[in-house]
Simulated scan of single mutants.
Amino acid sequence: MFGQLSHELEVNVPASEAWEIYGTLGISKHLVEDGSAFEKIEVLEGDGVSGTILKKTFMPGSHGFTVHKEKFTKLDNEKCMKELKVIEEGYPDLGFTLFRVHFEIIEKDNDSCIIKSTIEYDVKEEAVANTSYANNDLVAKIAEVAKNYLIKNKATENAA
């Protein structure tokens, strides 16, 4: 069974500032510091470009599993777009044959942008009951952490 979900969050910072966090490994640091979704994020291979592999350890009880590995499959700095695919543990262990997340920073105007996250998944017929694990909760949390950091950083710069 194939499915697709989408989430959007508007942020009152230029798209270039939001992409600085999403287009690098910088978002990982903020997600761990936030402490609401991830306990640990390890870079197993790469430096944030296409082909980078991360191992994410979720906070206890925050997901239906504790760990998954993901690979950056696309990174386009011109289009402010990054795509990743879960390659081991987590979703595949629950019967998902595909779990891909596409992040895009869309410029709204000079001072605001939209963080758009799209999830595509395919789950084996015998694991259809696990489709509830494919939801927007995590991408919404990631966008919210990024927004909070960007707004806080902007306020700090304006105060200086």
Rank of each mutant, 00 (worst) to 15 (best):
M1S: 09
M1Y: 11
F2P: 09
F2D: 13
G3H: 11
Q4E: 15
S6N: 14
H7A: 10
H7P: 00
L9W: 04
L9E: 10
E10C: 06
V13P: 07
V13S: 05
A15T: 12
A15N: 11
S16H: 15
S16V: 14
S16G: 11
E17S: 11
E17P: 00
E17T: 10
E17Y: 14
A18E: 03
W19Q: 00
I21E: 00
Y22H: 10
T24F: 03
T24P: 01
G26H: 11
G26T: 13
S28L: 12
S28D: 15
K29Q: 13
G35R: 04
G35V: 08
K40Y: 02
K40W: 07
I41V: 10
E42I: 01
E42L: 02
E42K: 02
E45G: 00
G46M: 01
G46D: 04
D47I: 03
D47A: 13
G48K: 05
G48E: 06
G48V: 05
G48F: 08
V49Q: 15
T52W: 01
I53R: 09
I53Q: 06
I53K: 05
K56N: 07
T57M: 04
F58N: 15
M59G: 02
P60W: 02
G61F: 08
S62N: 14
S62E: 08
H63G: 02
G64W: 09
H68D: 11
F72L: 07
F72A: 09
K74W: 13
D76R: 14
E78S: 12
K79I: 04
C80V: 12
E83Y: 01
L84Y: 10
I87F: 01
E88Y: 09
E89R: 00
E89G: 04
E89H: 08
E89K: 05
E89T: 07
G90V: 05
G90N: 01
Y91F: 15
P92C: 03
G95Q: 01
G95F: 12
T97A: 02
V101H: 05
F103K: 09
F103I: 14
I105A: 09
I105R: 00
E107V: 10
D109Q: 11
D109N: 15
C113H: 09
C113D: 03
I115S: 11
S117K: 04
S117E: 11
S117T: 13
T118R: 15
I119R: 05
I119F: 05
E120L: 08
E120T: 12
E120F: 12
Y121L: 03
D122P: 00
V123H: 02
K124S: 14
K124M: 10
E125I: 01
A127Q: 08
V128C: 08
A129D: 06
N130D: 02
N130C: 04
T131W: 00
A134Y: 08
N135W: 03
N135I: 11
N135C: 10
D137Q: 13
D137H: 15
D137F: 14
D137S: 13
L138G: 01
A140K: 15
I142P: 01
I142Q: 11
E144H: 08
E144Q: 15
E144P: 03
N148I: 03
N148A: 02
Y149V: 04
I151V: 13
I151P: 02
K152V: 00
K152D: 14
N153M: 12
K154C: 12
K154Q: 13
E157K: 12
E157V: 03
E157D: 14
N158A: 11
A160H: 10
